[in-house]
Design a protein around this nucleic acid. Structure first.
Lengths: 220, 220
DNA sequence: TGATAAGTGGAGGATAATCCTTCGCTTGCT
DNA sequence: AGCAAGCGAAGGATTATCCTCCACTTATCA
């Protein structure tokens, strides 16, 4: 697949990229059975192009998963490079994963993960497990430093990130953005062992009912 | 509607109840556009019965919302009765809401809330607002007691509970149960102002990758 | 710049999901 | 026991989704 990919014409490669990005979003919102036509529409390309690039749903799902693994790996490297302390790295990683909507759900939770879906980096499962090991290292260190709460492991973090990232239906993107930010901070606080700043208020002004209703109205 | 309801034959009333309970679950999982036939099937009744009781989707959604408001209100009363301290009451309430999957999403986030959907307790919106006031009282007191973190209000809690309760697709009920319990504890910890127990480990044994995969296999 | 192969999008038939009604049978209620 | 109320399954109508075909467009490279 890879050698094919590099041989793609420039516009085709752009389209392929856009499909994967959009598919990630849509899969996060609706699950992996979301209509492919919606993905095509939201990606701004024709349905035929999607089918040409990804002959069936399973292929698309797998490619999105591979893409996710790559991106998560890159973010992990970035975070560790930027922060000498494990907790700092972990916190940055979590923030980024939520921010980028890198729904880890695909690679982590994909049924039939054992099936061959290989690219440069090996099978899906092998890469996932490797990523897990890296994160385990990170969490263990953060715990030894007394920064990360005991009893937390990468899976807890992944699943937490998924639930955080997953937008609620009906309420529209703005409100989702807003509450996700708040909940992200709460989540980080709950992971931290020594909850230093828990007694100080959160930065964001709490929503009032009227504001809530305004957002809901917007979303209709 | 109420007087009609009480006149229903006993089996019909049971069915109606069961439809609402099932609809709450399904709406929580899939959103309010979930197929009505699935609700009927999972409730163990015929599709015709559902349509007879609830002529269209909107009616069903509204009735579920009303039912939710009633139950949430009852849980709120129970929690305050059982706990003299506001934080204790709040914590019990949150636990119960998650446990019962009382997706507050319906009454809180329902678009078109202003439309008349009345029952004994008044319009949907009026009852929601009243519930909000009660919870606001509770949160304020808990904050004055130095127990609840500043900057949290009922909406934050409702939305947090919704995200907690909402099951992840694909992964099956057992795993969802498991991680929801863990995340609930984290959430409660993050709400607490003085994070007393944050340095002690969580009770549950963290998942390993192999266990995760076993659960995923089960769910397929 | 122009030839050409690669790529594109939309129309549309096939299939499947969902809606919602009709109707003959069943079951609580008195 | 009788009967009105309730029931569910079948199925026609409608809509959503899948997926292919083909006439048009565009990047690429000489």
């Amino acid at each position: 697949m890879t050698e094919n990919t590099t041989r793609l014409r420039a516009d085709a490669r752009r389209n392929r990229e856009q499909i994967i990005i959009t598919a990630r979003e849509v899969f996060l919102e609706q699950g992996i059975h979301a209509p492919l036509e919606e993905i095509a529409r939201r990606a701004g390309i024709g349905i035929a192009t999607l089918y040409r690039r990804f002959p069936d749903r399973h292929t698309l799902v797998q490619q999105v998963a591979l893409d996710n693994l790559t991106l998560v790996g890159a973010e992990l490297d970035r975070a560790t490079a930027a922060h000498p302390d494990a907790w700092g790295a972990l916190a940055q990683l979590i923030r980024r994963l939520v921010e980028l909507r890198l729904s880890v759900i695909m690679p982590v939770l994909l049924p039939g993960l054992e099936q061959d879906a290989r690219s440069e980096g090996g099978t899906l499962k092998a890469r996932r497990d490797q990523l897990f090991k890296q994160m385990e290292q990170l969490t263990r260190t953060a715990q030894q430093d007394g920064q990360l709460r005991q009893g937390i492991n990468p899976i807890d973090i992944w699943l937490g990130v998924i639930k955080l990232s997953r937008p609620l239906p009906v309420i529209g993107p703005e409100l989702n953005e807003l509450i996700t930010g708040q909940q992200l901070e709460l989540f980080l606080g709950s992971l931290h062992a020594t909850a230093l700043d828990a007694s100080e208020p959160l930065r964001r002004q709490p929503l009032t009912l009227d504001e809530l209703d305004r957002y809901l109205k917007m979303a209709e």
